[in-house]
Simulated assay, not measured.
Amino acid sequence: MTIKEIEKKTLALNALDKIHLVEKLLSSLDKPDPEIEQAWIKEAEERFAAYEKGELKAIPLEKVLRDIKRK
């Protein structure tokens, strides 16, 4: 089956079936990359260690939220 055939059949689906298909397709793309996951874990551990040593300061949640709202 070609992409055009799949597209034609997909567009003929009812709304609920289209939503279900879109959800399936999107979830199939949302697979974590193990290398990236490991890099983030390492980064988080290093940041936490720096925080515990006093090399990194925490920012209060209220300030972070205020700053986000201003943008």
Rank of each mutant, 00 (worst) to 15 (best):
I6W: 10
E45F: 02
L56T: 06
K63G: 00
D17L: 07
E37Y: 02
W40D: 09
E62P: 01
A49F: 12
E37H: 07
D67W: 00
L61R: 15
Y51M: 08
K31M: 13
L13I: 10
R47I: 13
T2M: 06
F48N: 11
L61F: 07
F48G: 06
P34S: 12
L56H: 00
E52F: 03
K71C: 03
E46R: 12
K8H: 10
K53T: 05
E62Q: 02
P60K: 09
A15C: 08
L29Q: 11
K8C: 01
L29V: 10
I6H: 06
K63A: 10
S27T: 10
R47L: 15
R70K: 15
L61H: 04
E45N: 08
L25E: 04
A49P: 00
R66P: 01
L61G: 02
K57R: 03
L65S: 07
L65Q: 05
L13K: 13
D67H: 01
A50W: 05
I19W: 00
D30L: 09
A15I: 11
K71V: 08
D67V: 08
L65C: 02
K8S: 09
E43I: 02
L29M: 09
E52N: 11
Y51P: 00
P34V: 10
I36K: 12
F48V: 08
L21R: 08
E7Y: 10
I68C: 03
K42P: 03
A15Q: 12
L16E: 14
E62F: 03
E35C: 00
E55F: 11
K69W: 08
